[in-house]
Amino acid sequence: MRKIHWLDWMILALLLLFAGYVWTRIEGTLNYKWRWEIIPQYLLHYDQDQGRWTAGILMEGLLNTIRISVLASILALVLGTILGLARCAQNLAVRMLARTYLELLRNIPSIVVIFIFYFFLSEQLIAAFNIDGWARDIARGENAWLWQVFFGDMRRFPSLVSGILVLALFESAFVGEIIRAGIQSIPRGQREAAQSLGLPWRDEMRFVVLPQAMHKIVPPLANQSITLVKNSAIVSLISVHDLTYRTLALVSSTRAIFEAWITTALIYGGLCFLLSLLFRRLEKGSDR
């Protein structure tokens, strides 16, 4: 384990001094009154009526952020794998279609993508498949609790689906390029050996190329998953009740601007840090 150097202590001291300076400037120049004591009740609070601890609005927002991030990551991985394989396909039309999709999504700001999808596509899809009515029926059903574990409040299920889809579509473009780069990094001799054995393209990818590519694409995929967690805050713009949306509601009702946003920043930072530790262990396991 690496020992802490004197330079590390100096950098830490400078960071603490800078934080103290910002704190005093906010308190003095802006005449801001800190109210940190109100924040814990918006994380966890004891419900006298139910007789148990319940999640506050920030914790509810965090749970929704985790749901959105996990489901969007799974969907983005599936779509990105298909796109990555399509980018390496032998058919020119398939390659061009995949590249067009990737270039469009990668070069358009995410905020533009989310508004285009939500206002022009999502509302029509939700109405066409009657997702809103279906979600209300589930919310009144006997197994509503099981659906709530995975999707939260089913009354807001349509907006949650919109957020998951738009995040997955946007992130799949980056995942697709990671998969494509991993496939093309495999030495050509490996593919030629597979072809000499008479393996079709599908089996060549399945048994020869992709298993070797996985070792190279795990680190960038892990980084992209962490990026997705941070990018998930943008779904608050379409009224998805994630952590950022709940923080906006908290600031609006309490005016505890700095306390709320600092707490939210720490929650996002802690979540991403835990993910980085998890992926680091997975990378070490894949190298064995």
Rank of each mutant, 00 (worst) to 15 (best):
L104Q: 03
G198N: 02
T24S: 13
D47R: 06
W201S: 10
F129Q: 06
G80Y: 02
N223W: 00
I68A: 07
C272E: 09
N231L: 08
A181L: 06
I114D: 10
N107S: 13
A128H: 14
W201G: 02
L16H: 01
R281Q: 12
S239D: 14
R255N: 14
W53A: 09
L274I: 08
L278F: 15
G189F: 01
I262F: 13
I267G: 09
L146E: 12
G189Q: 02
Y118G: 04
E171Q: 09
L160F: 15
K3P: 10
L275I: 06
A135Y: 04
V235Y: 05
A256E: 04
R206Q: 13
R246W: 05
V70D: 05
G141V: 02
K230M: 14
A13Q: 02
T24H: 12
Q184R: 08
S69F: 04
R99K: 11
I217W: 02
W6P: 14
L228K: 08
F119H: 15
G61Y: 06
F170L: 08
R191F: 00
Q48A: 15
W201A: 10
P211M: 03
A72Y: 02
P158I: 07
D153L: 03
Q195C: 00
L237D: 04
V149Q: 05
G269D: 11
L102T: 14
N231W: 01
L266F: 13
R255Q: 13
S236N: 08
R156K: 08
S286E: 13
W36C: 05
I108N: 04
D8L: 00
L274E: 01
L17V: 15
G182Q: 07
M154K: 06
A168S: 11
L275A: 07
G182F: 03
L30A: 13
L75M: 08
I4T: 14
V218S: 05
L63F: 08
E259I: 07
S276D: 15
L271T: 14
I126G: 04
Y101N: 04
L266K: 09
K33M: 01
A213Y: 01
A128R: 15
R99Y: 02
L277D: 07
R99I: 00
